[in-house]
Computed example of a mutant assay.
Amino acid sequence: MTKASNDNERPTRIELETANRNLRASLKRSEDLVSDCRDKLVGAYGLTLPEDASR
């Protein structure tokens, strides 16, 4: 875990890069969960998705 900068100090480049990397990883996990849930719902209800809505 990274040390948070003091509110009066500007974050360092390393802190910003670390926060950005963590946010990208979190976004990827969220996208994967949404995709998995969508696939399960589509399968459970026997639906089909339009071609452009597919991954």
Rank of each mutant, 00 (worst) to 15 (best):
M1Y: 10
K3M: 09
S5L: 09
D7V: 06
D7Y: 03
D7M: 02
N8M: 12
N8F: 10
E9T: 04
E9H: 12
E9W: 01
P11M: 08
T12N: 00
R13N: 15
R13K: 15
R13G: 01
L16G: 00
L16I: 15
L16C: 07
E17G: 07
E17I: 01
T18K: 02
T18I: 15
T18M: 07
N20R: 15
N20D: 13
N20S: 15
N20F: 14
R21V: 13
N22W: 06
N22Q: 12
L23W: 11
R24Y: 04
R24V: 02
A25V: 06
S26G: 05
L27Q: 08
K28T: 08
S30L: 14
E31L: 12
D32S: 13
D32H: 02
L33C: 09
V34M: 03
S35T: 10
S35E: 00
D36T: 11
R38D: 03
R38W: 01
D39S: 12
D39I: 02
D39Y: 03
K40I: 06
K40P: 05
K40D: 12
G43C: 05
G43A: 10
G43R: 11
G43S: 07
A44P: 04
A44H: 13
Y45Q: 08
L47M: 14
P50V: 00
P50I: 02
P50M: 04
D52Q: 13
D52L: 08
S54K: 13
R55Q: 02
R55F: 05
R55N: 10
R55D: 07
R55W: 05
